[in-house]
Amino acid sequence: MLDFLLQLLLALDATLRLATPLILCAMAGIFAERSGIVDISLEGKLLTGAFVAAAVAAITGSAWLGLFAAIGASVFMSLIHGFACITHKGDQVVSGVAINILASGMTVIAGIALFAKGGQTPHLPNESRFRAIEFYGVETLNNVPVIGTIYRELISGHSLLVYLALVLVPICAFVMYKSRFGLRLRAVGELPEAVDSAGISVTWLRYRALIVGGALCGIAGAYLSISHGANFVREMSAGKGYIALAAVIFGNWRPYKALFACLLFGFLEAGTSRLQGVDLPLIGEIPIQLMLAVPYIVTVLLLAGFIGRPTAPAAIGQPYNK
């Protein structure tokens, strides 16, 4: 029984670690999409953030500089997206595709130019990374059954960025629903004319939404390469940006629901490594590809209205023309 508990805790622990980049990207996606801008460029921004964080951390030796540089680079990608589809009213999906491809190419080119290691960045020493934080009292509580284990395995021992991601969810929700910025942001994604007619700049509002999203993606990228991992490797984002987008849809463009979706998808991913080759009673062996495909299948079913019907922001995807 205790062994099962430990296994479960370890799985949940892994869930949290795997869900962290998803959560940050999903929050970024909510900001962009709630403002009316389709954001399939989450993937590219995540990848850019991961590369820049690792490169800067490798050069300066500072994880913090890496993080800030990642945020800056990712925001820059957001601004390109904004320039194309806010300022020039271009197609948001096309712009997103362009950014994702640019990120794929640029990270490798810059990586080779800087480090000549085939697109990877050098392995970071621990002091240049965001490492696990041991909470106060783990030792003391260790002897208390159950609670001690939960405290040690699940609550304590994550990187700062994991906790940051978890704290950012209620903050995002608060900003979205309780602040002036949030009210205007939600309005501009539903009916930009109303925002314009209220004397508020649609352009600047949408840019701000993208900038916030860029910053969040930058943190997510930094987590991948200088916290969860210890260097950048090609295509490190590996579709996580798209899974985050799926979580946004699954979460009906709401922060808490999206958080739940990210945790669910993270749990599935955590489960695959544990279930690989394991014969489950009654079910038999589950192909891990099937488990990994669950986020995509769920999103397709959801969008098709087979399980509930998500309501996207009404003005999403349409450039604003006066």
């Binding site: 309780k178 602040s179 002036r180 910025f181 949030g182 009210l183 205007r184 939600r186 309005a187 539903e190 009916l191 004319e193 109303a194 925002v195 007619s197 209220a198 004397g199 508020i200 309501t311 009404a314």
Partner: peptide
């Protein structure tokens, strides 16, 4: 110029919220 998914109050406040927090 009313957001259908907003309440009357939210629509009336839009643009003249009276502060950073609603």
């Amino acid at each position: 110029m009313l957001v259908p998914r907003f309440s009357v109050l939210e629509n009336v406040m839009l643009g003249s919220e009276g502060g950073g927090l609603l």
